[in-house]
């Protein structure tokens, strides 16, 4: 146990590096952004599920949609007597056509990087 100083210095360096993200961002925290709704989305009042549920579960719903559409070939999703075409581009973004304000802001804030858009078209992006 003659290496005590070395071990302590090593541990200190490790801790410093490990906690780097915390103290680097200290004080820089910004408030959570609020997704902005388009006029069309506002007018619709309710999304496919309740707002809170959409907020926390939209990824599961989209995952369900994509698996059912791609693998089972069933394109229509019916809930509460309403029918939707299970399509990100043609249903979700039809209403939420402001992807930058509606989707990207929160995704950026939470460091979520969905790769949906590498394949699925963003309607407004088209010139």
């Amino acid at each position: 146990m003659n290496d005590k100083p070395k071990i302590i210095i090593g541990l200190a360096i490790f801790l410093a590096v490990f906690t780097f993200p915390f103290w680097y961002n200290h004080g820089a925290a910004s408030t959570a952004p609020k997704p902005e709704l388009t006029e069309k989305a506002k007018a619709a009042k309710k999304c496919i599920l309740e707002k809170e549920q959409m907020r926390t579960e939209h990824m599961q719903l989209l995952n369900d949609w994509r698996n059912t559409v791609v693998r089972d070939g069933q394109h229509v999703y019916e809930i509460d007597g309403k029918e939707y075409v299970a399509s990100l581009t043609n249903t979700c973004l039809e209403c939420h056509s402001n992807k930058a304000e509606f989707c990207d802001k929160c995704h950026l804030y939470t460091s979520a990087e969905p790769y949906c858009w590498t394949c699925h078209t963003i309607p407004k992006e088209k010139k």
Partner: peptide, 16 residues
């Protein structure tokens, strides 16, 4: 759990 408890499971899928 998601498939069974999430409300998304309450919806049904069908063909056009």
């Amino acid at each position: 759990a998601v498939a069974s408890t999430g409300q998304s499971a309450e919806g049904i899928y069908k063909n056009e």
